[in-house]
Structures are given as structure tokens and as C-alpha cells.
């Protein structure tokens, strides 16, 4: 067993522990911080797999922007910040465990039986080539996804801002 294998096992163990913390902790801020750990370990795994650009995009987009958005959402909706026993719906726990374990069982059975190939990484991914492919072969999906992002952001602003006309009607 090589050193890189042992390193990747530790990383995957940390990934699973942090992911379990996201869904089991009874403190909302701790859940967001555990998601930061999960995403950081994912970025390190991508670096290990020589997908440097995707790892850096994870760090910038997720850890930089999405987590901040989540923390804003937690604080604006005034979720109780400390320990909160009400965070989980206890009567759903048994069936949720059943469903998630069966999904995990099916997936791992199929994955273990189908893919037993080795990953051979000889060199890193060139970001220049990635950009060239993104803007030649995938240029239509790229433009469509950027338009979707723009539409989603405008839609988010429109939904979230206070509608002055409605506020006036309520006050009358």
C-alpha cells in the first residue's frame, strides 16, 4: 500500500465524519461549519485526483460564497442558535435511516461490482485545456448555464425583497 492510498483513506474518513456531523448535530451553526469541513476535504480530494481547477472552484464558490449565504439564511430566519432539540423530526428518524441505508447498500453493491479499475494519475489537469474545451465543445451549455444563473439570481432578489405595494395594502 502506497502512502497516497493511506492519505486518501484518512481524507475519506474525515469526509464521512464531517458529513455525518452535518446531518446529526443539533446546532445549526455547527452544521454549517461541518459543511465547510466537508467541502474543504472534497477540495483536497480533488487536488489529490489532479483536478486542480475544480478543487479551487469548490473553495471559491462553496466555501467563499455559498456558506456565507447559508449563515445569512440561518441568522435571518432566526433559527435558535444554540443547542436545539427541535431541529430533528424524531418520528421520521427510523424510516429515514431505513431509506438512506438501503440507498447506500444498493449503490455500494452496484459500484463494487461494476467498477474495479485503478486510477492512474500521470500529470495534472491543464486549466488552459479545460477552458478551451469549455468554450469550444461545451460553449452552448456554458452560455445556457450562465443565463440560468443570472435568471436565478434575479429571481432570488425578486422573491426575497419586500414588495412595497403589498406592504401598503397590509397597512391600509
Amino acid at each position: 500500500m502506497e502512502a497516497i492510498d493511506i492519505f486518501s483513506y484518512f481524507l475519506l474518513l474525515g469526509l464521512l465524519l464531517a458529513g455525518a456531523r452535518v446531518v446529526t448535530t443539533s446546532n445549526v451553526i455547527h452544521a454549517a461549519v461541518a459543511l465547510v469541513f466537508t467541502l474543504t476535504i472534497t477540495a483536497v480530494i480533488f487536488l489529490l485526483l489532479a483536478a486542480e481547477f475544480v478543487g479551487l472552484v469548490i473553495v471559491m464558490v462553496y466555501i467563499g460564497a455559498v456558506i456565507v449565504l447559508f449563515l445569512f439564511g440561518i441568522m435571518i430566519t432566526r433559527a435558535p442558535l444554540g443547542e436545539n432539540a427541535e431541529l430533528d423530526n424524531d418520528k421520521n428518524k427510523t424510516i429515514a435511516l431505513l431509506i438512506s441505508f438501503s440507498i447506500f447498500g444498493i449503490f455500494s453493491y452496484i459500484l463494487l461490482n461494476t467498477f474495479d479499475r485503478q486510477i492512474n494519475i500521470t500529470e495534472g489537469t491543464s486549466t488552459e485545456i479545460l477552458g478551451q474545451i469549455l468554450l469550444s465543445r461545451f460553449v452552448y451549455p456554458f452560455e445556457i448555464v450562465s443565463f440560468v444563473l443570472l435568471a436565478a439570481l434575479i429571481g432570488g432578489i425578486t422573491i426575497a425583497r419586500k414588495d412595497n405595494a403589498l406592504v401598503d395594502e397590509d397597512q391600509v
Binding site: E2, I4, L15, G19, V23, T38, S100, Q118
Partner: peptide, 17 residues
């Protein structure tokens, strides 16, 4: 390195979600 540990970990993360 083998691809299987990564795939199993991703499946576990999916079911946790």
C-alpha cells in the same frame, strides 16, 4: 490507487444527504 473507496465514500455522503 483504486477508484472504489472514493465511489463508496461518495455513495455514503449521498445517503447522508
Amino acid at each position: 490507487m483504486s477508484a472504489q473507496p472514493f465511489l463508496i465514500a461518495a455513495a455514503a455522503l449521498f445517503s447522508m444527504g
